[in-house]
Design a protein around this nucleic acid. Structure first.
Length: 153
DNA sequence: GCCAACGTTGGC
DNA sequence: GCCAACGTTGGC
């Protein structure tokens, strides 16, 4: 099993929105090739994901989700009236991919970016080293450390 | 293929 | 709102 971190702006879609969803959520709108390649080539069913709240008052990891459907072509890139329509996408070779995510756990306390930067075991996270990547790999140790921080207090 | 100009992300 | 750190676009 692999571990990942997914960024989301909580004003758009938060861990609470994921929790309140009856089924799985389509993780849409990733328009970055590095992130696209990860979704298309690496993310597998049942992988675990950290849900990270960005661009908000309290930035940090809010909880955990699970991949309920591995990467598949984003259906919206071909729908002309859709917000995520891409005129350069061709059906033979899709440009963009999505995945389905379902809720697993909301942390009792948010693991803030500040906290993450203070932990020596977490200081090499992609989150810290490369700010702008909305889908990124996390090691098992990093994943477990963040979970234990989130479950404490 | 280079690189300048522009656009976006995201913490603060 | 500012600005650094990217990523993308397009002329040459």
């Amino acid at each position: 099993m692999n571990y990942w971190l997914l960024k989301t702006e909580p004003e758009e879609f938060s861990i609470d929105d994921l929790q309140n969803k009856a089924g799985a959520e389509i993780w849409e709108g990733i328009r970055n090739y590095q992130a696209r390649n990860i979704i298309r080539d690496q993310i597998e069913l049942n992988d675990r994901v950290l849900i990270y709240h960005s661009s908000c008052k309290n930035v940090g990891v809010a909880g955990v989700g699970e991949i309920s459907k591995a990467g598949y072509p984003c259906p919206y890139q071909f729908e002309k009236s859709h917000k995520y329509f891409d005129p350069k996408a061709e059906s033979g070779s899709p440009r963009w991919y999505v995945m389905d995510v379902k809720f697993v756990e909301k942390f009792s306390s948010l693991v803030s970016l500040k906290q993450i930067k203070q932990e020596s075991i977490l200081k090499d996270m992609v989150l810290v080293k490369q700010g702008r990547l909305s889908v990124q790999p996390v090691t098992k140790d990093e994943f477990e450390k963040i979970c234990s921080l989130g479950r404490s207090d």
